[in-house]
């Protein structure tokens, strides 16, 4: 087991006006991740994801319960653990903002005590795979968000950690950058067997990267299984949004799809359908029979929505 927690609990004292009350950010969480797995850790904002990660890496001490990461106790063995994990927190940089990207890599290689040859080879490998050549000489503060995230991930992987933890790695990135990053991570895992734990708000990240999903809600584990299983459990629906050539009445009679709402007097209509029972193509074909479609888009289920449904279903 590369990650193993039993009854992991973390409480915070927060000020509520004049009074102080205790909030349980993580509540009796027990989970196990095997080496080589790729796990998506999802939940609404404030569900306890970041708190869990901070306990896994040794920044926070649990209020109760046990945690082992790479077989080590994160707080007591923090320095040994640091050599075996790589972490990217979406909003906090581990790079030196006023130095060229390359220099951050050099400093980090020294920090992790990598032999010069190995450091050079590994940096070259990451630079090539993450296409960082263009901005290697640019100070970190001047690179784009997408470039910075690639550099952050490279920085976290420089010392070939057994476990890579990514907190919202694709937040704010454009479609192309997301795609590139996901491809790299898939390749990296195939090559080195790195275990991956990531939190995200993007279902696409989970779909392309993770074979297992953990859903946390109010600090508790609400689901543990495959993404397909999750979709089945909650019946998360995708939504087909069509723009019509002329305003039309609400499209209510489409098989296996339900009309959600219309905008612009019927020019744009939202149709929800269940990915299990039909396909977008079939819904579109049915729509085309009664109206001329000029444009369309498909909205994936929101993670917040999935969690909400999961919560409703469990009651």
């Amino acid at each position: 087991m590369i990650i193993e927690t039993t009854g992991l609990t973390r409480e915070f004292r927060v000020r509520d006006g004049l009074r102080r009350r205790t909030v349980r950010a993580v509540d009796d969480l027990s989970l196990a991740v095997e080496a080589g797995e790729s796990v998506g850790y999802i939940g609404a904002n404030g569900a306890g994801k970041s708190t869990t990660i901070k306990m896994l890496v040794g920044i926070l001490v649990p209020t109760a319960g046990e945690v082992r990461t790479c077989g080590l106790r994160p707080v007591r063995d923090r320095r040994d653990l640091a050599r075996r994990i790589g972490v990217v927190f979406g909003q906090r940089s581990q790079l030196w903002w006023d130095l060229p990207v390359r220099e951050s890599f050099e400093i980090l290689a020294t920090i992790h005590g990598l032999p010069a040859g190995e450091a050079r080879a590994r940096t070259a490998e990451l630079v090539e795979l993450l296409e960082m050549d263009d901005f290697l000489a640019t100070p970190v503060r001047q690179v784009s968000l997408g470039q910075r995230m690639r550099a952050e991930i490279a920085a976290a992987l420089l010392h070939r950690p057994d476990l890579l933890i990514l907190d919202e790695p694709t937040i704010g990135l454009d479609v192309l950058s997301k795609q590139r990053l996901r491809e790299f991570l898939v390749a990296e895992r195939r090559e080195h067997g790195t275990t991956l734990l990531l939190t995200t708000h993007d279902m696409g990240d989970i779909e392309r990267l993770c074979d297992r999903v953990l859903v946390v809600d109010h600090g508790r584990l609400a689901y543990d299984g495959t993404l397909d299983g999750l979709a089945r459990t909650v019946g998360a629906q995708r939504v087909l949004v069509v723009d019509l050539a002329t305003p039309a009445d609400d499209l209510t009679g489409i098989p296996d799809a339900t009309h959600v709402r219309s905008e612009g007097g019927g020019l744009r209509q939202h149709l929800a359908f269940d990915a299990e029972s039909t396909t977008a193509a079939r819904v579109l074909a049915a729509v085309s029979e009664s109206a001329e479609v000029r444009d369309l888009s498909i909205e994936e289920p929101e993670i917040e929505d999935v969690v909400r449904r999961l919560y409703a279903a469990s009651r």
């Binding site: 890496v57 040794g58 320095r79 640091a82 994990i85 927190f89 909003q91 940089s93 581990q94 992790h112």
Partner: peptide
């Protein structure tokens, strides 16, 4: 606030 301190925790030095 900048999160630099958390990053220190992720490195193998005191």
């Amino acid at each position: 606030r900048a999160g630099t301190l958390d990053v220190f925790f992720l490195r193998p030095q005191p």
